[in-house]
Design a protein around this nucleic acid. Structure first.
Lengths: 229, 229
DNA sequence: TGCCCCAGAATATGATCAAATTAATCCCTG
DNA sequence: CAGGGATTAATTTGATCATATTCTGGGGCA
């Protein structure tokens, strides 16, 4: 019997020293996911070797991985940059998340233990803290962690991978949008979601997360339409 | 205005010489997609350098890319192999394709030009030829090409990427399943699909492709349940 | 404006080091 | 004395780096 480790980012052996290419990958992934790199910004191999002190081979591998995931974009002429998102792209992302997220939330509700729910609520509390503090970066991280945890609870590794991958695509643009309007007016439906999960109301949980997704993503779409960076 | 090249596998400049890592990537991708590598088979860097004559850096990058796409699996101990598919995994793939494929077919129907439809029918004819010839490999390639073309016609690069990526996950197992029962009894709903697309019946096209997907994928699931390799 | 050259960046190689699997050996027990 | 398990040696494979080569893009010059 083989233990299937679907998720690449899962530590195979927690105590083991991580290879450099894995470390670079995670760093760079975080930079994209939380919008530290702006859309359009170039990502160069040499820049990363200088910045991280690593050799170019690990850096190359990290960039290839992110590019394959859609987090970075290959520009044809050997250049790589953070992709711009058009309104059409956001529409696709909305469609995809509108299907994936509720489905995963539904499964998560059926499977989550009370401890799992407690943990989710902790993550949501951290999110609220970040909002009241006006900590944008903290908000983005907490929000991602909350949803990521929900994906993992669904026990559907392939679908979870798909949903997770979408975050990399709108991360940079989300940061731009949120940066424009501060952290105060960032409503979510997490409380409704948690209530439904506690009540084992899987359908209700799916509905709550669907509204959460639409609410958040529509803001991104509208924001991209108007000023057009 | 930046031209967004969403798909990595698209030639940026057709005349240009492709870099080695891109060549290796495509070769290896084909091997996975069409089941030339069996589930569980190890994919080693050195093996590929010997086999292709390329250096290890391009090989490494190709493997990382495929791993990020879920075509290969990282085994924790720095080893990489072709993943085994469990019945649960297939269930996830069925769910995902059951949503993605009809949606893309619907959009493709709305957008396809008559020439596009002609081209699709050519691809389908090649598929039939492969079946009557008993050419398994040819069948798998033609079938993929048909569906891939359908994805591209939908003009939804992100969703198309997602759907395309799923093929890499069930490619090896599909080959095993089809290999067991020959090419004769491989029914599909492509004729119904084409008829609906010609009639601009988007809903009908979506229905046809949905049945096609279910029919094909259910065979894989059942086949995985019974003999358990 | 168009061409040519150059700086800089990416691609690709082979060497070197480290880790892991495999093979072989040895010791201990029955 | 034979078999089994485990430790260790050998080999294979992965990870990283330094370096050479190729290509792209831009600036200078006609």
């Amino acid at each position: 019997m083989t233990k299937v480790a679907q998720n690449l980012t899962a530590d195979p052996a927690p105590g083991r020293r991580l290879p450099a290419h894995e470390v670079i990958y995670r760093q760079l992934r975080g930079l994209v996911l939380f919008g530290d790199l702006a859309p359009g910004q170039a990502v160069t191999i040499q820049g990363l070797t200088d910045q991280t002190g690593a050799g170019m081979t690990p850096v190359r591998e990290a960039i290839r991985r992110l590019t394959a995931e859609g987090a970075l974009e290959f520009q044809g002429n050997r250049r790589v940059c953070v992709p711009f998102l058009t309104a059409d792209h956001v529409s696709e992302l909305i469609l995809a998340r509108q299907w994936l997220d509720p489905h995963l939330a539904l499964r998560a509700t059926e499977r989550a233990s009370p401890e799992d729910l407690d943990h989710l609520e902790e993550l949501d509390a951290a999110l609220d803290t970040a909002i009241t503090r006006g900590d944008l970066r903290g908000y983005l991280e907490s929000n991602y962690r909350f949803h990521k945890r929900l994906y993992d609870l669904a026990a559907a590794p392939i679908l979870a991978d798909m949903a997770d991958g979408l975050w990399l695509r709108f991360g940079p643009s989300l940061r731009v949008v949120c940066g424009r309007m501060g952290t105060q007016n960032l409503p979510d439906k997490h409380k409704e979601l948690m209530a439904a999960m506690r009540a084992r109301d899987a359908e209700g949980a799916a509905r709550a997360i669907r509204e959460d997704v639409i609410q958040g993503m529509e803001q991104v779409r509208q924001s991209l339409d108007d000023p057009e960076v």
